[in-house]
Simulated scan of single mutants.
Amino acid sequence: MNELVSFIQKTKELEAHLNKAFPIEGRETYIEEVFKLLEERQVILNQLPDLSKVLEERVKEDLIQLESRISTLLAEKMTFVKDDLRILQQRKNTNNQYENPYGNISADGMFLDKKK
Rank of each mutant, 00 (worst) to 15 (best):
L37C: 01
L37D: 05
L37I: 00
L38N: 14
L38P: 04
E39G: 07
E39K: 13
E40I: 04
E40T: 05
E40Q: 12
E40F: 06
E40C: 05
E40A: 09
R41N: 06
R41Q: 11
Q42C: 02
Q42H: 10
V43C: 08
V43G: 03
V43P: 05
V43W: 04
I44V: 09
L45F: 15
L45H: 13
N46F: 05
Q47G: 08
Q47A: 06
L48A: 01
L48N: 02
L48E: 06
P49N: 06
P49D: 03
P49A: 04
P49Y: 04
L51Q: 02
L51C: 02
L51K: 02
L51H: 03
S52K: 09
K53L: 11
K53T: 10
K53G: 10
V54F: 05
L55T: 00
E56I: 04
E56V: 03
E57Y: 03
E57H: 06
E57L: 05
R58K: 13
R58C: 03
V59G: 00
V59T: 03
V59D: 01
K60S: 00
K60H: 00
K60G: 00
K60R: 02
K60L: 00
E61T: 02
D62N: 08
D62K: 01
I64K: 10
I64V: 05
Q65K: 15
Q65C: 09
Q65F: 07
L66N: 05
L66H: 07
L66Q: 08
S68T: 14
S68F: 12
S68Q: 15
S68H: 14
R69Y: 10
I70W: 09
S71P: 11
S71Q: 14
S71Y: 10
T72V: 14
L74R: 12
L74V: 02
A75V: 02
A75I: 08
E76V: 09
E76D: 13
K77C: 06
K77T: 07
M78N: 15
M78F: 08
M78T: 12
M78Y: 10
M78P: 07
T79W: 07
T79R: 15
T79M: 12
F80P: 06
F80K: 12
V81P: 02
K82C: 05
D83W: 09
D83Q: 14
D83Y: 13
D84H: 07
D84Q: 09
D84P: 04
D84R: 10
L85V: 08
R86S: 15
R86M: 11
R86E: 13
L88S: 15
L88G: 12
Q89P: 02
Q89H: 10
Q89M: 04
Q90S: 14
Q90K: 14
R91T: 11
R91H: 12
K92Y: 05
K92A: 08
K92E: 07
K92P: 02
N93I: 05
T94G: 10
T94K: 13
T94L: 14
